[in-house]
Each structure stands twice: as C-alpha cells, then as structure tokens.
Design a protein around this nucleic acid. Structure first.
Length: 421
DNA sequence: TCACTGTTAGTCTGGCTGGA
DNA sequence: TCCAGCCAGACTAACAGTGA
C-alpha cells in the first residue's frame, strides 16, 4: 500500500530524463522517463498502449491491458508509485480503469477504497508474476536458455530410460525444436502437432506431457482455447538426480561426436521406419539409438556407451541394435556399433523409405497427418455450427449438438492376443 | 481445435531364475 | 559370464465419450 491515489503530482523530481526522452505530449512524459541506474523506459508498444490505447484490442479486457502495463513496469524496474502515475497520465480508457467498473456493458464509479485495493492488488500480482516468470525477452537469452535445457536433457540420460523415457524425451525435444524456431520459451503446440513430429499418438503425447510437467520440465502456461493450441513453458527442473557413478564414468570417456544438428540433420524418429512396432516399425527406442550414434558414421559406440547415453537397460539396447543391424541401419562388430546411414539427407531418406517398405510401415506418418487433418476439419465445422447456434438454448444448457466424430473410418481390427494364445 | 478419462488389447521393460 | 524364458507391471494405440 502506498496511500491514497488522489493527490498525485508528476514525478519530476525523482526521475531524470535521459537522452532518449522524446517530444511526447506532456501527459505521457512520465512514461518515457528513466532513472540513470536501474529504471528504463517501457517498450514502444506498451508506451503506445498507455499513451493512446493503441493495441488495447489485443486484450480481452481493460483489466488484462492494465495488468500488462503493470508487468511491463515491474520488468522495467519501475516502482508502484511511478506505475500509478503512468496510469493517471494514460489514455482515458486506461486512466479510468481503477475508478470505474464496467459490468454487462454498464459503467459505475468505484469507491476510493475499492479503487485503491484494485490498484494494489494488480501491482502485487504483477510483482509476483515477474518473480515467478522472469522476462527473457531477447533472442540470445531465449536461445541460450533453450540450449541449457537441451544440455540438461542430454546430461541426464538415466531420466530417459524405462518404458516411457524415449517418448517423454521425444515430446520434449519436439517442443524444444518448436521453441527454437519460434524463438520463445513458451512454445504453442497441440498434441496432434507434437505427435506428428514425435511419431507417437496424441494420447502418448498427452501422457508424456503430464509426466514432463510432474517432473518439472514443462508447465502449461495457457490451456487450449477454441482452435488455439495450449502454450507450454519449458523449464529446467530443480534438484535433478545425478547419474550413477558408473554411468558418469562412461559419459566422461565418450568420443567427441559431431552434433547432428550442426550437420543440419534432424532426428530420424519422425520417419515411417521408426513408427511403433504395432505398425511394423522399429519403434522409438531404435530411433533414439540411431540418433545417439555418430551421424557421420565414422565413430563407433560400445554397447556400454549406448546404454549409458540412452539410459536404457543393456538387454533393451542389445535387442534394438540387433533389429537395427537386421534392417541395415547400423553395423556391429567387436569395436562397437556404427551408424550406416548416408550423410546426404535425400539419400538417407531414401534408405529409410526402403527400410520402411521392407518392414511394412510405409505411410504411417502420412496417415496420421491425414487423420489429424480430417479431425481438424470436423471440429472446425462443428465449432462454426456451435458458435452460430449459440442462443438462449445454449445459455440455458439445453442446446447439445452432436459432437464431431474425431476418429473417422472403419474400426481397427484387433490383433489376437499372444498371451491369450 | 483442444484436454481429459476410461477401456481394451497388444507391446515393452527389466527383475529374476536356471542352464550352458 | 552370457543367454533365454517367465512374468508383472508399465506403457501404448485406438477408440468412445464429455466438455470448454
């Protein structure tokens, strides 16, 4: 609390102007001030929002817009007093926010105490939000943080063993890739989008995201809304368990391998050849092992090194290496395992196409994409109809349209149980 | 678009055990 | 030491249903 709002004077004495100060109109002058040490001016969009309401329509309500100014002010190092001054000098719509309440389109005056509480709560929430989610606004900070997360993932292979590990890791890597492309720590992706890139089903993505959230790798920033996908905040979990000493010893003695990403090579996991064994593919474990091997094929990794890097059980590694060798994707001898995949991307894709053809898993990824496209279309039609028919029946909970048939097509034939047999 | 829960049937992992 | 088989439990795909 900083006292009543009313008798406020422009903070001409406490804040100094810097060289960048503008020729802005007097009532917005306070927005452009900075102190020489830690306080800086707000960004241009935020200044424009306060000055004349530019961009106000980006927010669902005035409150959200005002909260945005509070968060921006906290990030810029302002104190509550300066922010309140800025609000007072802002455009009419924002300036009147604290003192008036709009409900069902009608405006009414708030009492002085209510307005004061309103301002204090907003500022307090903004401070809490910034403390919880520090700003990472510039390109380099975001990319550096994403690289740190990637490094943390790789440095803890023991977290990605077990049955669900490879799926969890694949989902996390897909989110990381989307985040890198969009240069954000809060990538937006639907389960279907992730599933197409990770070569797993949307159900698996949902379950993996739940596990990743529980482990502290991601946090849902905003849920899905209408046709908008949810956004996820990528995190580095605190207090990660250290790898076992024997694993750490193996990791320390690894040969230096060129990074696949540096060679412009992406993971093989999204190829038909590595779809789930239910489709005839080699599966996610095999994809993980191929990704771990030297992309140039020059260096070999021993079974122990593959085991340490993947976090999988030695028998699992042996089993999948054997399957990969049979498919002609790796070469095994007494020195270890070597990747046998062309360095040229097009030739490698052709090689994988041949493998998928032999395994009978050709077209799995394309079919999944087509299924998702059909589901999107069905939902859009349903959604348009639902929105168009919203009326008093909807308001009273009486309108219940047919849900879209998201999983179209004939029912899948069940494979007879081996156990039952 | 999305999330989420639940079901069914099949797959995978890894601990355990015994034989070579 | 290695390998193979057994088995329980975890996991997955596909699907149905519900709701925002």
């Amino acid at each position: 609390m900083t006292g009543p709002v009313a008798p406020r004077h422009p903070a001409t004495t406490t804040l100094t102007s810097d060289a960048a100060v503008s020729t802005a109109p007097p009532r917005t002058a306070v927005l452009q001030r900075t102190t020489p040490v830690t306080v800086r001016a707000l960004s241009e969009p935020m200044t424009a929002l306060l000055r004349d309401g530019t961009g106000l329509d980006r927010y669902a309500s005035r409150s959200e817009a005002v909260m945005a100014t509070a968060v921006a002010a906290v990030n810029a190092g302002w104190d509550e007093e300066t922010w309140r001054l800025a609000l007072e000098g802002a455009c009419e719509e924002i300036a009147a926010w604290a003192a008036t309440q709009i409900r069902q389109g009608r405006s009414r005056q708030r009492s002085a105490g209510d307005a004061e509480r309103h301002l204090s709560t907003t500022w307090r929430n903004a401070v809490a939000r910034v403390a919880e989610r520090p700003p990472t606004g510039d390109h380099f900070t975001v990319q550096a943080e994403l690289a740190e997360i990637d490094l943390t993932i790789s440095a803890h292979p023991h977290l990605w063993g077990k049955a669900s590990g490879p799926s969890d890791r694949a989902v996390l890597q897909v989110l990381l890739a989307i985040a890198r492309e969009a240069c954000t720590l809060t990538p937006s992706a639907s389960t279907r989008q992730v599933s197409e890139h990770a070569n797993v089903s949307p159900t698996t993505v949902t379950n993996a995201l739940r596990r990743l959230a529980k482990a502290g790798w991601v946090r849902q920033d905003s849920p899905a809304q209408g046709t908008l996908a949810p956004t996820w905040r990528l995190l580095r979990p605190e207090d990660l368990p250290a790898p076992a000493p024997e694993v750490a010893a193996v990791l320390e003695n690894l040969p230096v391998l060129p990074l696949a990403a540096a060679l412009g090579r992406t993971s093989v996991r999204a190829h038909d050849a590595f779809s789930h064994s239910i489709h005839g593919g080699l599966g996610r474990i095999a994809a993980r092992l191929v990704d771990l091997l030297d992309p140039t094929g020059a260096q070999r990794l021993t079974a122990a090194q593959l085991q340490a890097l993947s976090g999988l059980h030695r028998r699992t590694v042996t089993k999948h290496v054997r399957a990969l060798a049979l498919a002609g994707l790796v070469e095994v001898d007494h020195r270890g395992v070597r990747r046998v995949l062309e360095t040229d991307a097009a030739a490698a894709a052709e090689h994988l196409d041949d493998v998928a053809g032999e395994l009978g898993s050709t077209g799995v990824v394309a079919r999944r994409k087509a299924r998702h496209a059909a589901q999107r279309e069905a939902f859009t039609l349903w959604r348009v109809d639902f929105d168009a028919r919203r009326g008093w029946r909807v308001e009273r909970g009486l309108y219940r349209p047919e849900q879209p048939q998201l999983f179209a097509g004939p029912p899948r034939a069940r494979v007879p149980s081996q156990r039952a047999a």
